[in-house]
Amino acid sequence: MLLVKDTDSAPRGRRGWLRRIEQLDPEADCQEIHRITAGYEFPWDYQRSLELALFRTYCVPTISGLLRETGEFEKRPQKRYDDTALLMAELLEHGYDSPRGRESLRTVNRMHGKYDIDNADMLYVLCTFIYDPLDWIDRYGWRPLHPHERLACFHFYRQVGIRMGIREIPEDFQVLHRFKMDFEREHFHYTDDNHAIGVYTRDLFCAWFPRPLRPAVKVGVNAMLDPMMLSAFGFRAAPAWVTSVGQGALRGRARLVRRLPPRRRSKAARDPRNRTYPGYPVGYRPGDLGADRDSGCPRR
């Protein structure tokens, strides 16, 4: 499958990419559609929503317990974040069956293969990559998602999950969504491991800002978490006015973005917050990433 490439002749008009999406099949062309959605139309929204999606998975005690046991979040939270973000970006930018995509999946499977991870936990994490960004864009996106985009996201990550060896992935969008909702109701509850991993992650987000702003960022992060997450982490809810201001700012941003011209270059693999691998992908391969590559430097 040929994926859309960066071009100086992007579709005309703010709805140009959407017109292209309408012409594609959400299953057969899921990689191309999802790259347009996440790389051209909503790159900022996808980065923020996937940050919260990963945060959500730490509300599951078996997941947070394993992460705390490895010590990765305590010792190298930025590297753990960068590894995950870049490996997912490789799949999105190049496709899961491309040479770099296959290498990325081997890296993911290499890291996961060192631990005894329950299949249901793996399936749940996959769910968050599908549904959390869709929910975010429904609330804060500059335009509504097309049904093709929703289904393409599902089919894209379903194929990723199959290549990761995740079993019993439903073939239906709604069935998998019900699994996610039921899983959260059953498994989200407070543990000390949840709290510790939640604090490490929130501190990481705060570290991206100047020190005087970090107390406000901490409250802002809490404002983005739903009641189930706050309870599972043992975090204090933000004041209602903070939540309202934050949501208003995000909706204001959407109105501004709506007026911008269509993006001509994909931003899927261009994250300025990548601090572990400066210059990536220049001089690096997907196989250089991962928790067992402690130096953050490429192999020669």
Rank of each mutant, 00 (worst) to 15 (best):
R102F: 00
Y58C: 00
D25G: 07
D203E: 14
G165A: 12
R259C: 13
P77F: 05
L50Y: 00
D29Y: 03
E22A: 11
E184N: 05
E168T: 05
E32N: 14
L134Q: 15
R214E: 14
G234Y: 01
D226N: 06
E74G: 10
Y131D: 12
L86N: 15
E90Q: 12
D192I: 01
F55P: 00
G165K: 11
Y157W: 15
G16W: 02
Y140F: 15
A254V: 04
R253V: 03
F205Q: 08
I169M: 05
D138S: 11
M111P: 01
G65W: 14
Y140N: 13
E74W: 04
L225R: 01
M111N: 15
K75E: 11
R158Q: 07
R150I: 14
R293W: 09
R12Q: 04
R300C: 05
R20F: 08
G296Y: 10
R163A: 15
E171Q: 10
L123R: 10
R150W: 02
V221E: 03
A28L: 15
H148A: 13
K267D: 15
I169V: 06
G283L: 07
P239A: 02
G246Q: 07
Y157K: 10
R255G: 10
M1G: 09
L204D: 11
G290R: 10
A223F: 00
C153T: 15
H112Y: 05
R35E: 11
E93K: 09
